[in-house]
Computed example of a mutant assay.
Amino acid sequence: MTKYLQTFLLFVSCCAYSQIPISVKVKDALGNENFHVTCTNDLDANGCIPLHVEYPELKQATTYQLTQGTYNPPIPLNQ
């Protein structure tokens, strides 16, 4: 039973990790990536901290070409 559970958790963790965007950066107003939020931070009138987020630009492929290749196995299939 533990092998099935380990295999399942490995599969789920791989799938979950594949969906994580790695290059997302969150910065405060001064450009610091490592900042600690406390009650003494420079808060605005609403009690919020201004943050800046940098993430990769996602694009959709709208044009591409397909070319048909010939199937030529290294060993004939009838052997």
Rank of each mutant, 00 (worst) to 15 (best):
L30Q: 13
L30Y: 12
L30A: 14
L30N: 11
L30S: 12
G31W: 11
G31V: 00
G31N: 09
G31I: 04
N32P: 06
N32C: 05
N32R: 15
N32Q: 15
N32W: 06
E33R: 10
E33F: 05
E33S: 14
E33H: 07
E33I: 06
N34W: 04
N34V: 03
N34P: 00
N34K: 09
F35L: 05
H36W: 05
H36G: 00
H36L: 13
V37S: 04
V37P: 06
V37L: 14
T38V: 08
C39W: 03
C39L: 12
T40D: 09
T40Q: 10
T40H: 06
D42S: 12
D42W: 01
D42A: 11
L43E: 01
L43Q: 03
L43S: 01
L43R: 09
D44K: 00
D44Q: 01
D44Y: 05
D44M: 04
D44P: 02
A45S: 14
A45C: 05
A45I: 14
N46E: 13
N46V: 02
N46T: 08
N46G: 11
N46F: 13
G47R: 07
G47N: 13
G47T: 03
C48Q: 11
C48R: 07
C48E: 08
I49S: 02
I49F: 02
I49R: 03
I49E: 03
I49H: 01
P50A: 07
P50H: 02
P50M: 03
P50G: 04
L51R: 00
L51D: 00
L51Y: 01
L51F: 03
L51P: 00
H52Y: 11
H52A: 07
V53W: 04
V53E: 05
V53Y: 05
V53D: 05
V53T: 09
V53S: 02
E54S: 14
E54I: 03
E54A: 04
Y55A: 15
Y55T: 08
Y55V: 02
Y55G: 01
Y55P: 00
Y55L: 12
Y55K: 11
P56K: 09
P56S: 13
P56Y: 10
E57K: 14
E57D: 04
E57L: 15
E57N: 13
L58N: 09
L58K: 12
L58C: 03
L58H: 07
K59S: 14
K59D: 01
K59L: 12
K59M: 09
K59P: 00
Q60P: 00
Q60D: 00
Q60Y: 08
Q60N: 02
Q60F: 04
Q60S: 08
Q60T: 15
A61I: 15
A61H: 02
A61E: 05
T62M: 10
T62K: 15
T62P: 01
T62D: 03
T62I: 11
T62Y: 10
T62N: 14
T63Y: 08
Y64W: 15
Y64H: 10
Y64E: 09
Y64V: 07
Y64G: 13
Y64Q: 07
Q65R: 10
L66D: 07
L66C: 09
T67S: 15
T67F: 12
Q68L: 15
Q68N: 10
Q68I: 14
Q68M: 13
G69A: 10
G69P: 00
T70A: 13
T70Y: 05
T70C: 09
T70R: 09
Y71D: 10
Y71W: 15
Y71R: 06
